[in-house]
Simulated assay, not measured.
Amino acid sequence: MRAGIWSNQASHKGTVFIFPGRSEYLERFGRTTSALLGSGFAVVSLDWRGHGLSDRIAKNPRACHVTRFTYYQKDVAAIIELAKAKDMPQPWFLFGNSMGGCIGLRALYNDLPVAAAAFTAPLWDIKMSKPLRAIATPISVVAHALGRSQSYVPGYNSESYVLKTPFSGNKVTHDQEAYDFLTTLAKQMPEFEIGGPTMGWLQECLKECKFLSTNPSPDIPCLAFCGDQDEVVEIGAINSRMQNWRRGKFELVQGAKHELVMESSAIRDNVLGKTEAFFKNAL
């Protein structure tokens, strides 16, 4: 598993663990990491199994696959052990994006040793049409039974999203510069990229989201954001969760797509600024 640690002499306010989303890797959070460092936090992050430069686990190394969604918790445990070994400054905080928000919420149930958590577009349910939702689980179960769990979800293949999708039709950001940065990364470092999710990943993700929805929110301060134009995650699931999070706060960001920390500078600075202030005031 590949991990990254950043700190400087000013890192006395604690350590932020960045949990990336599906298909993401360390370099995509360079600007976020720099902002946190500039505010006095150290940063620890990772490439999830099957992502970036961590070991690929599918027969097709370009496929986003996982045998059990809870296996990501083994990655969480490993990164926590690394942070302990490196004596990363306390207190610790969690910043989870998209799939990292799903993994992060389960980690909080498992007593992740953080003082507060912040999520951007957390994947607590996948955005789907009603007809697709009705068949998604049965089809993924059948695929698994037929030994096809590592086949791509229909409509996806091994292509990188940012390379096959023009800026004008992307679901990620309104910011041309940020999208160009992602496409440049994909072209210069193709070995970092993965394609679409497998049927097995879909089945496991749906099971995990269902499990999370049936459990109460942890007793920890939490701040969550989601763009009002998000077409990847189900906004209703986030809103419902945060309404019942006793020490939680939710902000629907106007004029934003899925990747809030890669949106326009005004949106990005607003989200990161509020997150940094939230962490500093959480104790």
Score class of each variant (00 low, 15 high):
28 R>F: 04
209 C>M: 14
261 V>E: 01
118 A>F: 11
230 D>I: 03
129 S>G: 11
143 A>L: 00
179 Y>K: 01
274 K>F: 08
140 S>Y: 08
2 R>D: 09
198 T>R: 03
23 S>K: 11
48 W>R: 08
25 Y>E: 13
267 I>F: 08
213 S>Y: 14
164 K>W: 06
149 S>F: 02
117 A>H: 05
149 S>C: 06
218 P>S: 00
149 S>H: 07
118 A>M: 06
121 A>V: 09
27 E>F: 13
26 L>G: 15
23 S>E: 14
3 A>M: 10
40 G>A: 12
283 L>Y: 12
31 R>S: 14
114 V>W: 03
82 L>C: 04
237 A>D: 12
283 L>D: 10
113 P>V: 09
247 R>E: 09
113 P>M: 00
192 F>R: 02
197 P>W: 00
200 G>I: 05
153 V>E: 00
73 Q>W: 02
188 Q>M: 07
162 V>T: 07
29 F>E: 06
2 R>M: 11
268 R>C: 10
242 M>C: 08
153 V>A: 03
199 M>D: 00
49 R>M: 13
87 D>W: 02
209 C>N: 15
67 T>L: 12
1 M>C: 12
16 V>D: 09
92 W>N: 05
62 R>T: 03
36 L>N: 07
208 E>R: 05
131 P>M: 03
87 D>I: 15
133 R>W: 13
219 D>L: 07
259 E>S: 02
202 L>T: 02
157 N>T: 12
32 T>L: 15
24 E>M: 15
224 A>F: 10
48 W>Y: 15
72 Y>H: 12
84 K>Y: 13
111 D>C: 04
161 Y>L: 07
104 G>Q: 00
71 Y>N: 13
237 A>H: 13
64 C>I: 08
196 G>V: 03
233 V>E: 03
66 V>T: 11
260 L>D: 03
101 G>P: 09
210 K>Y: 12
75 D>W: 01
61 P>V: 02
49 R>A: 14
260 L>H: 04
58 A>Q: 05
166 P>R: 00
199 M>Q: 05
182 L>F: 14
22 R>K: 14
98 S>K: 04
12 H>Q: 13
35 A>G: 11
165 T>I: 06
92 W>Q: 04
64 C>D: 01
266 A>Y: 06
195 G>C: 01
207 K>F: 04
48 W>K: 06
156 Y>E: 07
201 W>N: 05
134 A>N: 07
133 R>Q: 12
153 V>N: 02
173 T>Q: 01
260 L>I: 10
117 A>M: 05
224 A>S: 14
69 F>I: 12
58 A>T: 09
157 N>F: 09
221 P>Q: 04
220 I>G: 07
12 H>P: 00
216 P>M: 03
225 F>P: 02
173 T>R: 00
70 T>A: 11
250 F>H: 08
186 A>N: 04
192 F>E: 00
143 A>Y: 02
52 G>E: 03
266 A>V: 10
151 S>Q: 01
102 C>D: 01
121 A>I: 09
61 P>A: 03
84 K>I: 15
12 H>A: 13
58 A>F: 12
114 V>C: 05
106 R>N: 05
190 P>W: 09
41 F>S: 03
194 I>Y: 01
238 I>E: 00
2 R>N: 12
71 Y>G: 04
94 L>P: 09
257 K>Y: 12
38 G>C: 13
181 F>M: 09
32 T>Y: 02
5 I>A: 06
94 L>Q: 01
95 F>Q: 05
